[in-house]
């Protein structure tokens, strides 16, 4: 019993200080009043920050843009991840490990370096424009970087491996004799996919979608470095309110609202994960 306490007490203390307390303080400062002092707020019981979020279309737009971009990122990841997961699951078992390593290794090379690589490819004087002009396909650089498309490419590149993993695990559990039976009974591959693979992997697909959607909804770095300047996703707006405008109560209110908005997807994801 004493041994248990020796393990539990430090862990509880850490979690209360560094996870529970920050959440409480965030809530308190979302209700504080902005003040030109240091730190720039005065504790109050004011809903002015939240009222501003509701009244100003700018903030409402930030949430809608973030949800739309996150949904598009997750949808694209899912569409690319499905055949990839199927390909890895069907590979010879001795090749699977290599393919999984090739899938996960980019994660270990650093997120910002991959963003830097895309900037180098997509810039006006970048590699792709150099190639297009060198081949005589275009004679002026195509503006690609700082567009919504560039932002989506960057986000799909960052999150794709995380969408493949749950799908791969589900496809390994899929009974191959079911697909053989479908084929024996005359189902074309597309029909077998729609009637056997898709229903059996649907929960994993939902988990994969949410695994990308949840972090993508708060994304800051890729919109900032690759997106158009008007792509005001909520993560970017929160950053600006905090660092540029020094409006801590509004930044905190944005954080609390983002959390509330993500509660449903987060609970859904946890329930999917807890399935046997």
């Amino acid at each position: 019993m004493r041994n248990r306490l020796a393990v539990l007490l430090p862990a509880w203390a850490w979690l209360l200080i560094f996870v529970a307390a920050p959440a409480g303080i965030l809530g308190a400062i979302a209700l504080a009043e902005a003040d030109p002092g240091v730190p720039p707020f005065r504790l109050a019981w004011s809903t002015a920050g939240f009222a501003m979020l509701v009244a100003d279309d700018y903030y409402l737009g930030a949430f809608l843009t973030a949800l739309r971009i996150a949904a598009m990122t997750a949808g694209l990841c899912l569409a690319i991840a499905y055949p990839m997961a199927m390909g890895i699951a069907r590979a010879r078992p001795d090749r699977r490990l290599l393919l999984l390593a090739l899938l996960m290794l980019p994660f270990w090379t650093g997120f910002l370096l991959r963003v830097g690589a895309w900037i180098g490819l997509l810039r006006d004087e970048g590699w792709i424009n150099g190639l297009l002009q060198g081949l005589g396909i275009t004679d002026a650089p195509l503006p690609m970087l700082y567009t919504e498309g560039a932002m989506l490419v960057g986000m799909v590149h960052a999150y794709l491996p995380f969408a493949v993993l749950p799908l791969f695990a589900a496809m390994l559990r899929l009974d191959p004799t079911l697909l053989e039976a479908a084929a024996d009974l005359g189902a074309r591959p597309a029909v077998a996919f729609a009637t056997v693979t898709l229903p059996a992997t649907a929960p994993a697909a939902a988990a994969a979608f949410l695994l990308v959607f949840i972090p993508a909804a708060g994304e800051f770095v890729i919109p900032e470095l690759m997106g158009p300047s008007e792509a005001n996703l909520v993560g970017r707006v929160l950053w600006q309110e905090f660092f540029q405008n020094r409006d801590w109560p509004v930044a905190a209110a944005l954080a609390v609202s983002l959390l509330v908005l993500l509660l449903v997807p987060i609970r859904l994801f946890q329930r999917l994960e807890a399935r046997p």
Partner: peptide, 18 residues
């Protein structure tokens, strides 16, 4: 498990405020 699912901007801001 909270830091696994919280957006980075939320974790960062709330820890700074702490």
């Amino acid at each position: 498990g909270a830091p696994l699912v919280l957006p980075e901007v939320v974790t960062g801001l709330s820890l700074l405020l702490l």
